[in-house]
Structures are given as C-alpha cells and as structure tokens.
Design a protein around this nucleic acid. Sequence first.
DNA 1: TAAACGTGGAC
DNA 2: TGTCCAAGTTT
Length: 435
Amino acid sequence: MPKKAIKFPTDPKTGKKSRTTPNPLPGLETAAAAQGCSGRPPRHLPPEKHIPALQNALLDWFAVHQRALPWRNSYTPYEVWISEVMLQQTQMERGVRYFIRWMERFPDIAALAAAHEEDVLRMWEGLGYYSRARHILAAARKIMAEHNGIFPRDPAAIRALPGVGPYTAGAIASIAFEKKLPCVDANVERVVSRIFDVDSPVKQEPAAGVIHQWALRLVPEGKARAHNQAMMELGALVCRKKPCCASCPLGAFCISHHLGIEDQRPVPGKRATVTPVNAVTGVLRRGEKIFVQKRPASGVWGNLWEFPGGRVEEGESPEQAVVREFMEETGFTVNVAARHGIIRHGYTTYRLTLHCFGLDLAAPGKDCTPETCPAPPVLTAATQYRWASPQELEDLAMPAAHRKLADSLFSQPGQTAGASTMPRQGRLTDGTDTD
DNA sequence: TAAACGTGGAC
DNA sequence: TGTCCAAGTTT
C-alpha cells in the first residue's frame, strides 16, 4: 500500500512547481499561519508531536559525535564567552589554538581586566576583527566594576556587555547557564533553513525572524547547553555547505532533503564585490631601531602598530607613493633605499597588494640617532610612534601583513636590497611579478 | 538596512 | 587564481 502523499504548494516567489512526494512525516502539513512570528511564516510545520523525536535524535547524535574542545570541560562562563567571541568568523582549529594560549595568559576575568590593551591585542594578533579583543577587555572591566567580578547570569546583562550581540548572548546564556534561549549562527541558519525549507535569504527578514522562532522552539527544556551546541555541531560536521545527508540524524525531519533541494538551502544573500587595492609601506631604520606608529582606535586595525604607508594614487609609482605617504603621515622626508618585495593579502572586500620598501631619512639630520633625532614626527594617521628594537617589534600587535614584513626584516640579516631574497618560504614575493 | 571590520583555509 | 566562507557585532 503506497504511502500517503502530501502536496507541496507552488512557491509564489520562485514559481517552483508544486510536487507530490511520499510523506516523510505523517502529519506534516502546510501551515502558513501557524507560526506566530513576524514576517512570512514557514509554509510547513511539523506537528508538535515530532519535535521531541527531533530533539532526541539530535542529542543522541551529539553525545556520540561531539568534538572534544577545551571549553567543553567545565563550561565556565568565562571560557564559554571567550570561545564564542573567538570563533566568530573564525575556523575552529585556529580558534582552539588561540583559546588555549589565551587562557594561559588570562586565566580568569580578573586577570584579563587587569591586563594592558596592548597585551590583549598581541594575544589576538592574526585572528582579525580586532574590535572583538578591545570589546572583550572592556567587558571584563565592566564585569569587575558592575558585577563584582562575577559573570552575569541575566540574559539582558549578558547582552549589554561590549561585543556581545544576539548570537553570543544566547550562546553564553544557554551553554553556560542552561537558559532556554536559541543561538542562531551560520550553522543554525543552515540547519533550520534546510529542515524547514526556508526559501528566502536567511540573513534578511522575514527569514531571519522565522529561523529565530524555530530555533527557539526547538530548544528542549533544561537541555539548552547540549541542544544548542548540537545544532551548531551538526551544521559544522554534517549539515555543511555540501551536506552529508546520509549521515544526518535529522534526515527524517528535513523538508528540503525530502524535496531533494537541500543544496538550494540556505538561500544566500548578496555577494560583496572585491576591490583590488594597491598600497605601499616603508621601513625606516635608524641603527637597530625601526619606526612604527599606532593606528587610531576606530577603523581598520584599530590600535594596532604598523609601518607608515597608504594607497598608491592614480598615475603614481609605488616608490613615489611611499615617499609621499611617509611625508603626509610623519612629516619625514625619506628616500627609497631598498625594495623589500610585495605582500599580497586577501580580505573579504579587498585584495591588497602591498609594496614594501626600506627607507632612509633624506633631510634634515640624516645622521641622527633615534635618541638624538632633532625632528620628532608629526603624526597625522596615528596616535603614537616608537623607534622599536627587533625585540620590541615582536611584542607589538601588528596587522598580519605588517607582521609578515617585520618577520622578513630579521630573517635576512645584512640585506638591504631584498629584491633577490626570499625571507621565509612564501611569505614575501620578490616583486618581479609586480603589476 | 548596509557597510565596515581580518584572516587563512578549502575547493 | 579566484571565490567562498568560519560559532557576528557595531555603526
């Protein structure tokens, strides 16, 4: 006897044909108005009676397949918090490495709150999105000042901490304190949008609200910690961009899988266009010491140290650009003394080609030392400057591209013209392929 | 709402 | 080589 069939309606937006398919979930019905959230409700609603089965299947899977992660030992609020922020837009393996090192350096909230921002940023160097590190420090100090040094349990208080948005607040509240709240990250968006066949861009309304409502509804009472982690773990290990439906514990509950369209979920948003940027930077050495400056707190690479530089303007050579930029940012008149090569750096929205130069002071005081230099810089793009020794340079937080350049300076001792050398394998190109 | 905010890995 | 993207938040 054939299984009862369920009719899926034509999507008014995509005009996708309605289709008849064996009913995967007896009782699964079109329920346009059943979801009380704002925005367009989901078209399909599993009946209440299926939710416990889904939850149990997920929890059983998680119990077996969860990865061993350093913050999954004791689930202290501090560890949960730091791990959640570190993992934002960051791959798991890197996040774990940084987390372990961080906890050795800042073992608790009090130690973190007492730290200098420079040291916090140095621990964060290479992770990117440095406002996360500055926000973490500010939040630690707020917890000391306003919460007696105890991480707050109240979701509203958690959400009020700097750098804690809706996702992170839900994650901390549920994972550290077992609060019945969802945490919707890209993993959960993927899982929910596939199970419930959300057919509009997941980052925008109405899909975002629909997904949030579903994510909340799926959280089992008293098991928010395991459930929310399981949702994310499933998204990370099974329900990936290319899903492994054969090994998915929720296959029996997944509408888009039964429709055979799981590869069309989630619906992506707009793409950002990548802009090529030609830039220069210059290393000004006076004996052992090297000139670096600290960027403003706002904007890209906030409060990190860098070598001065900037964009190459239209019709300008990189050599001309670095001389001009150095004058504009420091007041120093410089000459190009060496080519240090090219660093290519990929971004979300930029593709940076950074031309690196060794510089000499042109005038005045060409033979002054860092201590006696008569003309201090006039900073226009920075808040501080420093003539740093190699060891001091090592201790400053720098953007990844500038760190590569800094490292290259000391791996080729005695070199002044770097055009023919390769400092560390693959880190700098020799510039002969310049555009 | 959209743009800014980093970086390195995967394909 | 180019594109996408990995446990998002702020402005």
